[in-house]
Amino acid sequence: MRSATPPPAPHRVAVLALDGVYPFELGIPSRVFGNADDAQGRPLYEVVVCTVDGRPVRTDAGFSVTVEHGPEALEAADTVVIPPAGPCADATAADPLPGPLAAALGRVRPGTRLVSFCSASFVLAAAGLLDGRPATTHWQVAEQFRREFPRVRLDEDVLFVDDGDILTSAGVAAGVDLCLHLVRRDHGSAVANHVARRCVVPPWRDGGQAQYIERPVP
């Protein structure tokens, strides 16, 4: 008798927590991808959180986060997600890509899908990964981003940009939109809608950042 074909291994997602990370965005991948199951109830994603050195990191909310993985988790990842952290868009930072962070990104395998939330797009841009490519970031730091990285085709009006192997999102809840988009891209609308229902969020938000940008009243 022929043995049953084993189920495919879950898609591996590594979330890279930087010092000063924003807790809300840090939790988005686990909440969204962690609620994606196949028809037999098996998880479609495996989500792990890591830091550049395996040590705890401070959040911007007055507490620290202890993780179970160091940068070695990036080597086995199919998707790497970088949530924003306080220093990401710090105009006073002497080095936009510190050595330990650059070394950690260097461990990512070629072809791995890269995702940034909010101002973490500064990290991808500083690494030269967005040169000549479309991207977005939070509208509040868009002008600074444009000055620092003129080779990136920035669009600050959209909620997220999908450029194949690199995806960037706008601020805060736009990270949820982007993760749902990835579930939809990977496994179809039915799975993404199911995840959205579990998370009590809309499966798709119309419009973009333009509706939130502060503009003078005529």
Rank of each mutant, 00 (worst) to 15 (best):
E46G: 14
A36E: 11
S64F: 05
V47C: 13
E25W: 01
V15H: 03
G99K: 09
T92S: 15
G54M: 09
D162I: 00
G128T: 03
F117K: 03
F24K: 00
I213L: 09
Q209I: 00
D177L: 03
E25M: 06
E143M: 05
G70W: 08
F33Y: 13
C179T: 07
Q209W: 03
R133D: 13
R184A: 07
D177A: 05
A73Q: 02
P216E: 11
R146K: 13
A192T: 10
E156P: 15
R113F: 01
R184Y: 00
D60Q: 05
E156A: 15
L167S: 03
A196L: 06
D53G: 05
V32D: 01
T59H: 01
G54Q: 07
W204K: 10
G164C: 10
V65E: 08
P71C: 09
Q211A: 15
C118R: 02
A210K: 10
G27P: 06
V15S: 02
G207A: 14
G106P: 11
V21K: 07
P87M: 04
G41A: 10
F33S: 06
V52G: 05
V195S: 07
T66H: 13
S121Q: 04
T59G: 14
T112Q: 06
P218G: 15
I82R: 00
A104G: 13
L101F: 10
F63Y: 15
R184W: 00
L182P: 09
A93M: 06
G111Y: 06
F149P: 13
F145T: 11
H194N: 12
V67G: 11
V80S: 01
D162R: 00
R185V: 04
I213W: 01
E68Q: 14
P8T: 13
A173L: 12
C118M: 04
R58N: 14
W139Y: 14
G111W: 02
C50K: 02
G20Q: 07
N193V: 12
V15Y: 02
W204L: 14
D60H: 01
L97G: 12
V183P: 03
A126P: 08
R197N: 13
P29K: 02
L159Y: 12
R107Y: 05
P134K: 01
C88D: 15
S189R: 14
P43A: 14
A36T: 00
G70S: 10
T92H: 11
A91H: 09
C50Q: 04
V201K: 00
P150R: 07
V115T: 10
A142E: 02
P110T: 02
E68D: 15
P150K: 06
F160H: 12
D19T: 12
A104W: 03
R31F: 10
T66W: 06
T136H: 04
E46D: 15
G86T: 15
F160D: 03
D60G: 14
L16K: 02
D131W: 01
R12F: 06
L18H: 07
L74R: 00
G208M: 05
T137E: 05
V217Y: 11
P218F: 11
V200Y: 07
D186Y: 03
H69I: 06
V65R: 07
